[in-house]
Design a protein around this nucleic acid. Structure first.
Lengths: 225, 225
DNA sequence: CCTGAAATTTAGGTTGAGCTAAATTATATT
DNA sequence: AATATAATTTAGCTCAACCTAAATTTCAGG
């Protein structure tokens, strides 16, 4: 646990964390698809990661994997760096919302503990980044916040966009164009019964946006009482 | 030339650039020692680098290597990044002189063109970094300045420390402790005939430092008229 | 010209992270 | 119980960048 994990292993752990964050296991195929490697390679790697000391995950054959505490901490470490970088690039270097993810994806593996702490300090130890994602603190505990998908709120309910966890710049730019970005207040005007298409109003501008349930799943909300 | 060079190749080119910057060739053993790999590995790698299209260096068997124009540009690209990072970390994130080199050594390989340009802009397109090293501009042309080693000035001559190209934090901290760092004005008080030991005075404080010729070689000066 | 140092070659080995194809085994659903 | 999907195993392959040891070649200085 002392020496640095290679960046591909960090990627495995990060992805497993993301996939299992809602509970449950990460399957071989899910990992293969998100890491863009073959299922056979995933099985291989995952077996290795399960048998190291300390082991980073538990491997339920034919079922999937789950992080151990060591794996969870390793994942949080890299997620913390990722989100700090995103935040910093936007705050300090004028990056836009859709530019930061790719950059952070690379830099997170090249960041020293010192740089991490300097950036954290420069940002004033933030709990959330501009994407609305929680930033694990230096003890790797994750700020909690009640959040819910756009698909799960009722018609006429008002909410604030907390985060758009999607990574694809195209999707982010698309949503941004319609004003759908973190810290924006919205109201659900209607949802059609069959295809679940929604009309959403941006409170500030009064503009209306049509959005389907697939994309809506990507939008995390904070309900306003 | 389109796709990114792997970081070990970037390191080879950077080191060759540094070694040959005073003219001449970089030998196998020099490279092996600075890259911490075996001479056989260097020969191998160097032969590969000479036969790629475009070739990054010319290989004079048993003599050494020299960068081609493509190799020189690739080296300057990475050196530019290295020096921008050093500068930025000190300016924006409170790094000290001796902390930046190691960090830059890693980050230089993880830096996108976008990040490079943002940092360059944030620093106001500097020509030199706090180490006193020239920063190639975005066209990769290198600012020139007349510089000379501390070993090469005359007694009673006044000069300003331009740079301390050394990389070892211990050496940097050692020199720093005595006030020997870039932009400091000094005067050579004396040089003993046999072992070339020098007494150097820091103009600002009036303090005197004893320094031997080996360490003095590491200090580049700008002569004041 | 001789010799030692430097460089090279040869041959083979290692590590890590992948890949394929085909066969097999589990699991989950009908 | 049958079947399709998912996962696994097996065997063997690739690639890049290293390594070693020993033999050999070249070069440069005395």
């Amino acid at each position: 646990m002392t020496d640095q994990l290679s960046s591909n292993i960090q990627d495995y752990l990060k992805r497993i964390y993301e996939i299992t964050s809602g509970g449950g296991l990460a399957t071989t195929n899910q990992l293969a698809s998100v890491l863009k490697v073959s299922p056979a390679s995933v099985t291989n790697m995952v077996q290795k990661l399960a048998t190291t000391r300390p082991s980073y995950l538990v491997y339920y054959k034919h079922k999937g994997v789950q992080l151990t505490e060591a794996g969870r901490l390793a994942a949080l470490k890299i997620i913390r760096r990722h989100r700090l970088i995103e935040h910093y690039l936007m705050d300090a270097l004028g990056y836009t919302w859709d530019e930061v993810h790719q950059e952070a994806e690379i830099l997170e593996h090249a960041m020293s503990p010192l740089l991490e702490s300097r950036i954290d300090a420069a940002l004033g130890h933030p709990e959330f980044n501009p994407h609305g994602n929680p930033i694990p603190n230096s003890n790797l505990s994750v700020p909690e916040i009640e959040q819910i998908s756009l698909n799960a709120i009722d018609v006429n309910q008002t909410a604030v966009i907390l985060s758009v966890p999607h990574e694809d710049p195209k999707v982010l730019r698309y949503l941004d164009k319609f004003g759908l970005r973190p810290n924006v207040q919205i109201k659900l005007l209607s949802r059609t019964p069959y295809d679940q298409t929604m009309r959403v109003q941006i409170t500030a501008t009064g503009e209306e946006v049509i959005i389907g349930p697939t994309l809506a799943e990507e939008i995390a909300l904070l309900i306003e009482e």
